[in-house]
Simulated scan of single mutants.
Amino acid sequence: MAAAAAAQSPAERFATYEEYLESQVTAQDLYYLESEAVARQLVELGFRGSGDVLRREDFEARVQEAAGLPAPVSKKSLASAGKELKDNFLRALAEREEANRTGRISSIIFIRDRNSRRQEVSAYIDYAHRLTTDDFEVYFSGKKRLFPRSTDLSFYNWDRNVSTSNSSPNYQVSAENACGLLFKNKSDRKIINVDPKAYPGDNTTRTPIQTDLYLHVVIYDHILRRGA
């Protein structure tokens, strides 16, 4: 039994990070420090215990991995971290960034605006995919705007009557059917219906965003249920 316990990782042996720290606190530590909280803190800082202590974020990442869940994203690694977000649209993106990066939510962003030629264009954007291809720090800092592209899930130039559709790593596009434009999530195979008069689909919410940056913005948040 002792050998089996030793073979387990700390994330499997302990329910919380605090329990993991307490496992390295000795009776002698408690005698001299007279405080479990201080003793745990000294273990976390590397002044007590084995000297090779997991950081809290590493421990939690291993717990997530052991549970078959996506690892959490460090707040410092988020493109929106530390940015002064002055518009509702940027705040909405920031609220969804971590969940889209970890795969808990798959958001589709609808943007309608005018391009540099004053032509009206719109697109449905796979947010999670764009997070992997674009530098979002320039968007969150206000240096550039997230804008429709012909390579997005669905793009339309209203002045030229030109449209394109492209599947992404997360969505398959269905543009020609009686229900209008549909997106099938490749993970759980659920359908997202972007018709504002229709039900958006299971586990999906439709949120219009009031913004000064674009003519029209709507975000569709699809919650991914693993094993669905």
Rank of each mutant, 00 (worst) to 15 (best):
residue 3 A to H: 13
residue 5 A to R: 12
residue 5 A to Q: 11
residue 8 Q to W: 03
residue 13 R to L: 15
residue 14 F to H: 12
residue 16 T to C: 04
residue 19 E to P: 04
residue 19 E to I: 05
residue 20 Y to W: 09
residue 21 L to P: 01
residue 21 L to A: 01
residue 23 S to G: 07
residue 23 S to W: 07
residue 25 V to G: 02
residue 26 T to S: 15
residue 26 T to C: 07
residue 30 L to G: 07
residue 31 Y to G: 05
residue 32 Y to V: 06
residue 33 L to S: 02
residue 34 E to W: 00
residue 35 S to Q: 02
residue 35 S to R: 00
residue 35 S to F: 01
residue 38 V to R: 14
residue 38 V to M: 14
residue 40 R to K: 15
residue 40 R to V: 02
residue 45 L to D: 05
residue 48 R to V: 05
residue 49 G to D: 07
residue 49 G to E: 06
residue 51 G to I: 06
residue 51 G to P: 15
residue 52 D to L: 10
residue 52 D to F: 10
residue 55 R to H: 12
residue 56 R to V: 09
residue 56 R to G: 00
residue 57 E to P: 08
residue 59 F to L: 08
residue 60 E to H: 11
residue 61 A to H: 06
residue 63 V to M: 12
residue 63 V to F: 03
residue 63 V to Y: 00
residue 64 Q to L: 10
residue 66 A to I: 07
residue 67 A to T: 03
residue 68 G to P: 00
residue 69 L to P: 00
residue 70 P to K: 07
residue 70 P to F: 09
residue 74 S to D: 13
residue 76 K to L: 12
residue 80 S to E: 04
residue 81 A to M: 03
residue 81 A to I: 01
residue 82 G to N: 10
residue 82 G to W: 07
residue 85 L to A: 06
residue 87 D to C: 09
residue 89 F to V: 07
residue 93 L to Q: 05
residue 95 E to S: 11
residue 95 E to I: 10
residue 95 E to R: 13
residue 96 R to C: 04
residue 97 E to T: 08
residue 97 E to D: 12
residue 99 A to S: 13
residue 101 R to M: 12
residue 103 G to V: 06
residue 105 I to G: 00
residue 108 I to R: 02
residue 112 R to L: 08
residue 114 R to G: 00
residue 115 N to A: 04
residue 116 S to H: 11
residue 116 S to T: 11
residue 117 R to P: 00
residue 117 R to Q: 13
residue 119 Q to C: 06
residue 120 E to A: 14
residue 121 V to I: 15
residue 123 A to M: 09
residue 124 Y to G: 01
residue 124 Y to P: 04
residue 126 D to S: 07
residue 127 Y to A: 06
residue 127 Y to L: 15
residue 133 T to I: 11
residue 136 F to N: 07
residue 138 V to M: 08
residue 142 G to K: 05
residue 152 D to S: 10
residue 153 L to K: 04
residue 154 S to I: 00
residue 154 S to F: 15
residue 155 F to H: 11
residue 156 Y to G: 01
residue 160 R to G: 01
residue 161 N to D: 13
residue 164 T to G: 02
residue 166 N to L: 03
residue 168 S to F: 03
residue 172 Q to I: 11
residue 173 V to M: 07
residue 174 S to T: 15
residue 175 A to F: 03
residue 176 E to Q: 14
residue 177 N to G: 15
residue 178 A to P: 01
residue 178 A to N: 12
residue 178 A to F: 14
residue 181 L to M: 09
residue 182 L to Q: 13
residue 183 F to I: 03
residue 183 F to G: 02
residue 186 K to L: 15
residue 188 D to C: 10
residue 189 R to E: 13
residue 190 K to D: 12
residue 191 I to H: 00
residue 191 I to W: 11
residue 192 I to A: 04
residue 192 I to P: 01
residue 192 I to M: 15
residue 194 V to A: 05
residue 195 D to E: 13
residue 196 P to Q: 08
residue 199 Y to M: 12
residue 204 T to S: 02
residue 205 T to Y: 00
residue 205 T to S: 14
residue 207 T to N: 13
residue 209 I to M: 02
residue 210 Q to E: 15
residue 210 Q to Y: 10
residue 211 T to W: 04
residue 212 D to G: 14
residue 212 D to A: 15
residue 215 L to Y: 11
residue 216 H to C: 05
residue 220 Y to A: 03
residue 220 Y to W: 10
residue 220 Y to M: 08
residue 222 H to E: 00
residue 223 I to A: 13
residue 225 R to W: 09
residue 227 G to V: 06
residue 228 A to K: 11
